[in-house]
């Protein structure tokens, strides 16, 4: 794929294909649009949050092919062909995703702004299956800041949901 630079203003759009929350989407994106801005501004999927726009807070965490990434530091065009899951895509027809339900049960948030990123990150952590002790969970959830300071409840929610998720396998 190659797309050339116009003389001024915005660069010309490219066509990309995403599997977004289980749905095939053909989209026109400008190369300078990040995955985060595509989700929030163009697609109205504002569940994915912008806290810093520089990979320093984790509020924008989404799952790409089952792995957690910061959507603010990826160009949408670079995700051409990828499978993207946002917080809007986690709940099934039968209700909340087990991680979402655990967050509600444990009051694992206050303002709710970092919450979608925390939840996607926790689902990504479950997929990685690399954290086994409480301290490992803490370390591997340290890419998601929570200014309200709900960390202990977030940890409790994740500990609660992990066995269910490990039982299920899969990538959200």
């Amino acid at each position: 794929m190659s797309q050339n630079l116009p003389a001024a203003g915005a660069p010309a759009a490219c066509r990309i294909l995403l599997e977004l929350n289980g749905e095939r989407r053909e989209l026109e994106v400008q190369p300078w649009t990040t995955l985060l801005d595509l989700l929030r501004d163009q697609l109205g999927l504002s569940g994915t949050k912008k806290g810093c726009d520089h990979g320093q807070c984790g509020a924008c965490t989404v799952l790409v092919d089952g792995r957690r990434i910061n959507s603010c530091l990826s160009l949408a065009v670079m995700q051409d062909g990828a499978k993207v899951t946002t917080v809007e895509g986690l709940a099934g027809a039968d209700g909340l995703h087990p991680m979402q339900a655990a967050f509600v049960r444990h009051d694992a948030f206050q303002c709710g702004y970092c919450t979608p990123g925390q939840i996607c990150s926790a689902v990504g952590l479950a997929n990685e299956n690399r954290a086994h002790t409480r301290d490992e969970l803490r370390e591997q959830m340290s890419g998601n800041l929570c200014r309200c300071g709900a960390y202990p409840n977030i940890l409790a929610a994740i500990e609660d949901a992990l066995p269910t998720l490990r039982g299920q396998g899969g990538d959200a």
């Binding site: 999927l45 504002s46 809007e88 709940a91 948030f109 709710g112």
Partner: peptide, 21 residues
């Protein structure tokens, strides 16, 4: 009791100031 706004917050449906278009 669990927060009444919890489900909106964990599903990304709670909308903040920059999220109205």
């Amino acid at each position: 009791l669990a927060r009444v706004d919890g489900p909106l917050k964990v599903t990304g449906q709670a909308r903040y100031a920059a999220e109205f278009g």
